[in-house]
C-alpha cells in the first residue's frame, strides 16, 4: 500500500469533485493545493481563480495567500475584487469554492470569526474574508476541516458563511438563489448533504479509518447508511501532488 499524508488524501478527495468547465474559487492553504491538484489531475479544463482578481494563473509555484504574486502570473486577466465576485455568482458559470473553517454544523454553515462571545471572544479568527460572499454565490462549496468534535458542533459560536442554513428549503427561503454546501472533506472522511433534509451524512471513509472514529469525533449525529470506503490516491496522483503542485512542501 502506498503511503500518503492526511493533506494529500484531502487534496485528492476534494479534487475529485471538480469537472472540466468548472470555475474553481480557491481560498488559502489546503484549498490552494486541492484546486491546483484538481486541475492537474482530474479537470485540466477547469479554471482556477482567486477572490483578489487573478483569473486562471499558471501556478508554477504554489501561492500561500490569495493575494500572492504567484496568482498574478500567466493569468488571462488580472483584475480586482468586484470582477472576482461577479464571476463567483455568475448565472452562466458553474462555480465550486474551496473553503476552510474553524467550526461547521450539520447543515454545512461555517464559522471563521470567533470562538466564544463575539465582542470579547476566547479566540478571534481572521473573519469572513470572501467566505460569506462565495457561500452566498457559488454553485457549490467544499469545506476542508480537521475532524474534531469541537469543530463539528451542534451550534456554531458565530455563523459566518451560510451553507444549507437550517436545512430543507431554508437556504432558498433566505433569498439565496443557488448554491449550498456540496461536501466536507476532513482528515478522516468525506461528508455530503442529503438532497431533502440537507443534513450532513457520511459518504466516504478513508482506507484504514473506522466509522466509529468518525462518529466519536463528530459533535452531532450523522447518517452512516450511505458510507463506503474511499479509493486511495494513486501513485500518479501522489507524484503530481509532490513533484508538480507543491515541490517545496509549503502546504503538503
Amino acid at each position: 500500500m502506498t503511503n500518503y499524508t492526511d493533506n494529500e488524501m484531502m487534496a485528492i478527495s476534494a479534487g475529485r469533485f471538480v469537472k472540466n468547465g468548472d470555475i474553481v474559487f480557491a481560498g488559502t492553504g489546503l484549498s490552494m493545493l486541492a484546486a491546483t491538484a484538481a486541475k492537474r489531475i482530474y479537470a485540466p479544463k477547469a479554471v482556477i481563480f482567486f477572490e483578489t482578481g487573478g483569473i486562471d494563473p499558471s501556478l508554477e509555484e504554489i501561492p500561500m495567500a490569495v493575494s500572492d504574486l504567484r496568482v498574478m502570473y500567466g493569468t488571462c486577466l488580472n483584475s480586482g475584487l468586484i470582477e472576482a465576485f461577479s464571476i463567483v455568482g455568475h448565472r452562466r458559470l458553474h462555480t465550486i469554492a474551496f473553503l476552510g473553517a474553524a467550526q461547521i454544523d450539520r447543515y454545512g454553515n461555517l464559522n471563521t470569526t470567533v470562538i466564544g462571545d463575539y465582542w470579547r471572544p476566547k479566540t478571534r479568527f481572521s473573519g469572513s474574508g470572501g467566505a460569506c460572499d462565495v457561500s452566498a454565490f457559488a454553485s457549490g462549496v467544499i469545506t476542508f476541516m480537521q475532524h474534531e468534535k469541537r469543530r463539528f458542533v451542534e451550534k456554531l459560536d458565530y455563523l459566518t458563511s451560510v451553507g444549507w442554513y437550517k436545512g430543507g428549503e431554508s437556504r432558498r427561503n433566505l433569498g439565496l438563489q443557488r448554491g449550498g454546501a456540496l461536501a466536507v472533506v476532513t482528515n478522516l472522511c468525506v461528508m455530503r448533504f442529503d438532497d431533502t433534509t440537507k443534513e450532513m451524512y457520511l459518504a466516504e471513509y478513508y482506507p484504514g479509518i473506522s466509522v466509529d472514529r468518525i462518529v466519536e469525533n463528530t459533535g452531532f449525529p450523522i447518517d452512516l447508511s450511505r458510507a463506503r470506503e474511499a479509493a486511495p490516491p494513486s501513485a500518479e496522483d501522489l507524484r503530481i501532488l509532490r513533484e508538480e503542485v507543491d515541490p517545496q512542501r509549503l502546504i503538503l
Binding site: 460569506c132 459566518t160 433566505l174
Partner: peptide, 10 residues
C-alpha cells in the same frame, strides 16, 4: 446592495 450576508451572523 448584495445578496451576500443573508442568513449570516454578520
Amino acid at each position: 446592495l448584495t445578496k451576500s450576508g443573508l442568513g449570516s451572523d454578520l
